[in-house]
Amino acid sequence: MKNKYSLFPGCISKNMYPSIEKSTRIVFDKIGIELLDHKYSCCPAPGVFRGYDRNTHMTLGVRNIVMASQDDVDVLTICNGCYGSLWEANEMFKKSKENQEFVNEMLGKIGLSYDGNTEVYHFADILHESLDKLKENKELDLGLRVAIHYGCHYLRPSAKHPDLNPEAPHIVEDIVEALGCESVDFKNKLSCCGAGGGVWSGAEDVSLKILDEKLGNVEEANVDCMLNICPFCHLQLDQGQAKLKKYKIPILHLSELIGLAFGVRPKHLAMHTHMVSTRDLEKKIKKAKRSKE
C-alpha cells in the first residue's frame, strides 16, 4: 500500500461540506497517509458534462489526472462522482488510441500531456486496506446503528472493482464494524439516492421522489444515522431531506464517522453545518465516551 496520494476533494466537499474535507484530512493524517494538493478543477460532474459531451468530460477529467501524474502520485477521491468521472476518463483514455490522440491534442494547447500511467482510487478502498490502522487509532466504539448508503458510482459499473460483488458489497460494512458500529440492513439498500445523472439540478421533483423512497426505507430500519461515501449523495441526503420535511435522519460521510471514532470533537469536524441536525447522534456518542471513562 502506498503512503502518499494526491487528494481530489471535489467541489462539494471543498465548497459546500468542508466538514468532509476536514475529517478526511484528519483521518488520513492519523493513519499515516500523506495527502498532497494539486490544481484541480471540478472532476467534471459526470451527470451534467458527460451527458453533454463525452469528449469534453474525458479531456477535463484527464487534465485533473495530469496534475497528479506530474508529481508521480495517484489520485485519491472521496466522492463517488469524482471517482466515477476520473476513473471513466482514465479508462476511456487508456482503452483507445483515438481518444489518446484527441486528449493529448487538446491538452497540448495548454502545454500538458498524459501518458496513462496514473491510477484513480476511492478512499473507501484505501481505508478498507488500512483496517488495522483504523482500529489502532480508534478511541471509542461508537455503538451506533448505521444505515450504509454506497452510492451508485462506487459500485457500478463493476469493472472498477473486479473483486467486489456489486449486489453484495462488504467494504464499508467492514469499516463500520471495525469502528464498533452495527451496519443495519434496509430495503433496497444499494439503490440510488436520486441525485446523479444531472437529475438533481435538472429534474428536482424526480430526484426528490427517488430520495423519498430511499429515506422511507431507511426510516423503517430505525437507525441512528445514514452513512455515505460520496459528498454528492451526502448533499442529496442532507439537503434533500430538509426539502422533503418528513425525516430526521442524520447524515454522515464515512470520513466524519471515522473522525468521531478517532475521538475528534463534532464541532471540530464542522458537523453543525449539516442541514439535518446531528445533535442526537452527538449525545449518544458523548454517552458512549462517558461510559468508557
Partner: peptide, 8 residues
Amino acid sequence: WYCTTCYN
C-alpha cells in the same frame, strides 16, 4: 434527462 446514471 431523468436517468440518474445509477448503472443498475
